[in-house]
């Protein structure tokens, strides 16, 4: 089973990199970009075949390592 995990900065946490990307997009002529938030994308290949167990394990992985929940949110997507 494969999983996709997105880790993004929480709302309210300033994202200077996102701001810089937005600024560069605008200087390239891409108008109308009102905001850019940058984050991380992780793809995991798991032995687990049970979706519920995989999800539970992924939550633990995110809480313990993949995300820093002081500043980041995570989103898990399972692909069987």
């Amino acid at each position: 089973m494969k999983a996709k995990v997105h880790v993004t900065l929480k709302n309210g946490v300033l994202d200077p990199q996102g701001k810089a990307i937005q600024h560069t997009l605008s200087s390239l002529g891409f108008d109308g970009v009102n905001g850019v938030r940058q984050g991380k994308f992780l793809e995991l290949d798991l032995d687990e075949t049970d979706a519920a167990k995989a999800e539970a394990a992924l939550v633990e992985m995110c809480e313990k390592l993949l995300a820093n929940t002081v500043i980041e949110d995570y989103d898990i997507e399972l692909i069987s």
Binding site: V13, L14, P16, Q17, A20, N68, V70, I71
Partner: peptide, 16 residues
């Protein structure tokens, strides 16, 4: 901060 012994987090410098 990563271990939780101190609160908060250290992020990318504002000036990048």
């Amino acid at each position: 901060t990563e271990t939780g012994l101190l609160p908060g987090a250290l992020m990318r410098n504002a000036g990048l």
